[in-house]
Design a protein around this nucleic acid. Structure first.
Length: 391
DNA sequence: GTTAGAATAT
DNA sequence: AATATTCTAA
């Protein structure tokens, strides 16, 4: 427990890190033109590292208490120099790091950024950008040590999302356990598979007598809509025939995410609808490399997305892992007229029985007012706002 | 009593 | 801005 002992390894880490950086720089130097910034950044980083080394100081881990579900890409290990790396990864067209999120892989939150040097990003409000990994609100220590790395995701069939704890103190400060956002539920009595019910796993505070009841209806832990989560959400929407026809419950059931509640879905859906109606089009700053926008029906999509949509559409409901690396999905344009409409057909294949549990799943056969005629152009709910507010 | 949706609240 | 909660009508 000597400071010195601690010191050494850290310095070693630095040195190695510097070496790695230098090697990186060598590689980059080959393309000074394409990666001018990278070059500089790396150089700076190296410089900084050296100074750190010399001064014997060690960079502090940035334990930012992320109140929101913010990201945290660091695979930790080694000194953290994120500070030197002004985000903005993927700057070059040839950068190959697109790991489309595999469902059962920890698809790190990818709050991808648009390039900044490019067109001035006017639209920072792209809400899509915020979807990232679900932040499980890691209960600070005292439980079980973080075992696995960040393995959070679901299996397409099982649904293994974290059950979500609700800590006592309102607004869990989330000390941010540096790395592991992961951690498998393990000890939760959650059936995992079926559980279509609102599995509200409460933190059993049997021993802790902090302040419990007392009539405080503490606010729920905010659910973070990770990419994965959102992806599922979208899948469900597709199957249900779009955001306008899907209902929260149906969505939730299709998503098969355990711990997910109706209200959460409802809320998300509400937001989704709002946004999709409001922002008719994707910001055109995608000029970078995202390629042109395609107009399909009344939906603008980008090539990838289009493919994805088309795929799942064509395959008759079987979702083929819609890879949406960018996290962009086409907002329903409230674009009535204009352009030549390529008739798109919204797959309305409900009754897609994916359930494997023998629970009487009613849904699927809608005999209510859910009979939507899917006509691309004219559909979309009867929205003749003729509301005449009385007083 | 349940659910969806809008309106608020945080 | 993103979620949660409340309110209201089916």
């Amino acid at each position: 427990m000597q400071l010195d002992e601690k010191m050494q390894p850290q310095k070693m880490g630095f040195r190695e890190y510097i070496e790695a950086l230098e090697e990186e720089r060598r590689k980059i130097q080959v393309f000074p033109k394409e990666l001018p910034l990278s070059l500089e950044l790396v150089t700076q980083a190296i410089e900084a590292c050296r100074q750190q080394l010399l001064s014997g100081t060690v960079a502090e881990y940035n334990l930012n208490g992320q109140s929101e579900c913010s990201e945290q890409t660091s695979t930790d290990e080694g000194p953290v120099f994120e500070e030197f790396i002004p985000i903005k990864k993927r700057a070059s067209p040839d950068s190959v790091e697109e790991e489309d999120e595999n469902d059962d892989e920890n698809d790190e939150q990818y709050s991808y950024k648009h390039k900044k040097g490019n067109t001035n990003d006017k639209k920072k409000s792209d809400w899509l950008r915020s979807v990232q990994l679900w932040n499980p609100n890691p209960p600070p220590a005292k439980e079980d040590v973080p075992r696995k790395a960040n393995v959070v995701e679901v299996k397409r069939d099982g649904g293994a999302f974290q059950p979500f704890h609700r800590e006592g103190s309102g607004e869990g400060k989330t000390k941010n356990v540096s790395s592991a956002i992961g951690k498998v539920p393990s000890s939760q009595p959650v059936p995992a598979t079926s559980s279509t019910g609102p599995v509200r796993v409460e933190k059993d505070n049997g021993g802790s007598s902090k302040r419990e009841e007392k009539g405080l209806a503490q606010r729920k832990q905010r659910r973070c809509w990770s990419q994965e989560l959102h992806k599922r959400f979208l899948h469900a929407l597709q199957q249900l025939g779009g955001a306008d026809t899907a209902t929260p419950k149906q969505i939730r059931e299709l998503m098969k995410v355990d711990g997910l509640t109706n209200d959460e879905v409802k809320s998300h859906l509400q937001k989704f609808r709002l946004h999709t109606r409001r922002s008719p089009i994707i910001h055109n700053n995608a000029s970078s490399q995202a390629g042109p926008l395609f107009l399909v029906g009344n939906i603008f999509v980008q090539p990838q997305e289009y493919g994805a949509v088309a795929t799942s559409t064509a395959s008759g409901g079987e979702l083929t892992t819609v890879t949406t690396p960018t996290g962009i999905y086409a907002p329903l344009a409230t674009h009535p007229p204009a352009v030549t409409h390529t008739p798109i057909m919204k797959p309305q294949l409900k009754q897609l029985e994916i359930s494997q549990h023998s629970h009487s799943e009613e849904r699927a056969n809608h005999s209510e007012g859910a009979v939507h005629s899917n006509s691309p152009a004219s559909s979309s709910s009867t929205h003749t706002t003729t509301t005449s507010p009385p007083s």
